[in-house]
Amino acid sequence: MHGCNSQAERMENIPESSSKGTKRRRDEDSDAGNSSSLKDDLSFTDTLVALRIMRVQFPHIDKVSVKPFILKSQLYSSVKDRTQVDRELETLRRDKVLRLFKLNTGQDDHAVMFLDDYLNQIDCVVKRMGGKKGGEYEVFGWFKTHVLDSKLESGIEHQELCSLLSLGGKVKESHISLLINAGILTRQLIDPNTYWFAIPNIGSLLKGLVQGRKEIISLLSRRRYKEMMLAALEKKRLRMSPLDMRFHLRDLIGSGHLSTDQTPTGLIIRVSKD
């Protein structure tokens, strides 16, 4: 299912400077701020700029077709003013540029995905499910047109969901089941009458996110001062997560689990004091 998540697609917003493979890749990388080290992009002044660069830098993962998503914690690591991040995310959400998703990782994690990417992801999932035009699969069209367009929050109650879907046609329980089976909605545990909007196919990456966090903290905790030079840490390969080191470090720094310290020999990453 690579067609749904190609590298070329992820680079679509980045200007092309040459038709030569390596040179183009290098140009794309530099245009995207995709520098060799994370230390160069730990400070942005604008949330949308940070989002666009992190979207391009989203790790390419084999066998998982998920459009690039960014964690709110990663934005906190790169845009110093958290209130500004929250405010700008809220504006972008209201303007329907992106959507926010509550993640079931046991923490207060939120993922951000550009709306166009999310709509494409839904199309990919429907295609893979063998969705035909008409029949019960028409619910996906109703969902995109009537639900996503008017419900911008991260959750929705059953009654409101049915009411919005009914703008497209007669709603049956099997329609709702189809949306849940596709991974587009998940039931809230506390209130089964309410659903979270979800990113389809994200399950294995969320597992990797949780395990990668533990792996990095454990790696640093075993060191004498619970710290390591960023340059050395970036070279480490993660065993427990398909996501790359940069993705995890941004998340852990932004969530306060790790802190950074600039020294004459380079940036140090250390486990934050409890």
Rank of each mutant, 00 (worst) to 15 (best):
V125M: 04
E136H: 13
C124A: 14
M129Y: 06
N120K: 14
G131R: 00
Q121G: 15
K102L: 05
N120T: 10
I122C: 00
V125D: 00
K133Q: 13
D109Q: 13
Y118S: 00
F114T: 00
K96D: 06
C124G: 10
D116G: 15
E138K: 14
C124W: 00
D108F: 10
N120M: 08
A111V: 09
D108T: 09
V97K: 15
G135Q: 09
N104G: 15
F114P: 05
H110L: 12
Y137Q: 04
N120V: 02
G131N: 03
R99V: 11
L100K: 13
D108N: 14
V126C: 08
C124Y: 09
Q121D: 08
D117Y: 02
L115K: 02
D116V: 08
N104Y: 04
H110K: 15
K132W: 02
Q121E: 15
E136I: 13
I122D: 00
E138G: 05
H110A: 15
N104W: 05
K132E: 08
V112Q: 03
E136F: 09
L100R: 14
E136W: 03
L119D: 11
D116P: 06
Y118N: 01
H110C: 07
I122H: 01
Q121S: 10
G134Y: 00
N104Q: 14
L100Y: 07
D117C: 04
D123Q: 08
D108R: 13
A111W: 03
K102P: 05
V112H: 07
V126I: 12
L115H: 03
Q107R: 12
Q107K: 15
D108G: 11
